[in-house]
Amino acid sequence: MSCGNSVLTPEIQGKIGFLGEKTKCWGVVEREGLRRFSQALMDPDPRYWDDEFAASTKFGRVITPPIYPSYMDRSPPWGDDVVSQSFKHNINSDGMGGFPNRSGLPPIETSLKRILNGGNEIEVYEYAALGDEIYFQSKYAGIIERESKKGDHLLIVTVETTYTNQRNQVLCVTRQALIHR
């Protein structure tokens, strides 16, 4: 049984297909960031650190794990400290509150307060390599309404992000289903 009114308003529907600006990640793919990432992933693949071996592979050079570019949107060294900003107005912040939205996507204005990660899709076309610049561009690929088993209305917002390099070659595409409930 349905409880309450639809949460998929015309304003929210109007955001489907909205494309954010293409944004450059600060810095380039570099060895130390790649080491920390691959160790945290527990992947000792020599393609990520051994120049001589990597040169002998089909990739021809040191490469990154498949969706490494999707973690390259890190805080640039200028501007406000985002961690301090998180706690500036709320000492009980979840730690993420001060982070700017760099996707360029407008917020989904809804009375639904909680956001859960419902799932992911990835497509991989090329591995990033040392020295690569990474660019990303996001869009609202879909926004649909669902009912929970209790009859509550939910929004499932799919954000698609395409990652490219300095030659505008697509490296990977990610889609994240965000459940607003």
């Binding site: 498949p66 419902g118 992911n120 990835i122 991989v124």
Partner: peptide, 27 residues
């Protein structure tokens, strides 16, 4: 992390000449 360990697992299975094209999963 889960989103990254899945392609790692598949990448290791298809190495050295195969390719992991796409994956989708729920949490």
């Amino acid at each position: 992390w889960k989103q990254s360990i899945i392609p790692q697992y598949l990448k290791d299975w298809v190495l050295p000449e195969g390719w992991v094209w796409k994956a989708s999963f729920q949490h």
